[in-house]
Design a protein around this nucleic acid. Structure first.
Length: 222
DNA sequence: GACCAGATTGTCT
DNA sequence: GACAATCTGGTCA
């Protein structure tokens, strides 16, 4: 299902409240599927419909950055729900997370992929790619297409505009009835790779990768 | 399409 | 010193 927003529609989008993030992390990850990631810049308003997220939990999840305690890098995960946690990986890529759970409980949702919905020419320029599928089909691609940098780390997505932030998530205009749940991507063995914490828009061509071969896939009503 | 190697650097042990 | 919540471009089928 492809669609795009008119400029007035994009301008009218409002951030989700903090309460949205102050719920069980799996539920937040599930309900973020279908929501709109928005970045307002001087050049354009960039919007994408989130089609893939991953939950990272503080208990029983060795893949979580905070699994071995608080460090300078993962410190934003301990902040209030709705905080943005951006980190660099593989020396060259950035990943965007939204902090969930009460302050002090280090849980977050990784934003992995989106369907481009507005500001597409800006995304193309940033990515240096033409094909729509190459713009946001992976966490680092998403960060690049949206122009997210380490400057966004620790910002409050529920109050964009403050502290220079203009990056937020808006309500799902067309929420999916069901969301697929399967195993996460990129985790080494023993890091929680078997946990069903990856949430996908069923059948979406915009995801980063299909469910792993042989991995269980469940469906949860949204 | 599947699989593989290389890029490149902050973080943590 | 090893590794990492990745991407890209190559090869082979």
């Amino acid at each position: 299902m492809d669609w795009s927003l008119t400029r007035p529609e994009a301008e009218a989008l409002r951030p989700l409240p903090r309460d949205f993030y102050l719920r069980p992390t799996r539920q937040v990850a599930r309900e973020l599927v279908g929501c709109l990631l928005v970045h307002r810049t001087a050049q354009a308003t960039i919007v994408g419909e989130l089609v893939e997220t991953e939950a990272y939990l503080c208990e029983g999840d060795p893949g979580c950055h905070a699994a071995r305690g608080r460090t300078e890098r993962n410190d934003p995960m301990f902040g209030p729900p709705g905080t943005i946690y951006v980190y660099q990986i593989y020396g060259m890529h950035l990943c965007i997370n939204l902090v969930t759970a009460p302050e002090g409980v280090p849980e977050a949702v990784l934003l992995r992929a989106a369907m481009p919905a507005a500001g597409i020419e800006e995304m193309r320029r940033r990515r240096g790619r033409e094909r729509l599928k190459d713009l946001c089909s992976g966490p680092a691609k998403l960060a690049e297409a949206f122009g997210v940098t380490l400057e966004h780390n620790r910002r409050d997505t529920t109050r964009p505009g403050l502290a220079g932030g203009d990056l937020f998530v808006a309500r799902a205009p067309d929420p999916p009835v069901e969301v697929a749940v399967t195993t996460r991507i990129g985790l080494a063995r023993g890091r929680g790779e078997e946990l069903l914490l990856r949430y996908l828009m069923p059948g979406s061509p915009w995801v980063s990768r299909p469910p792993r071969a042989g991995a269980p896939v469940e469906f949860e009503r949204r």
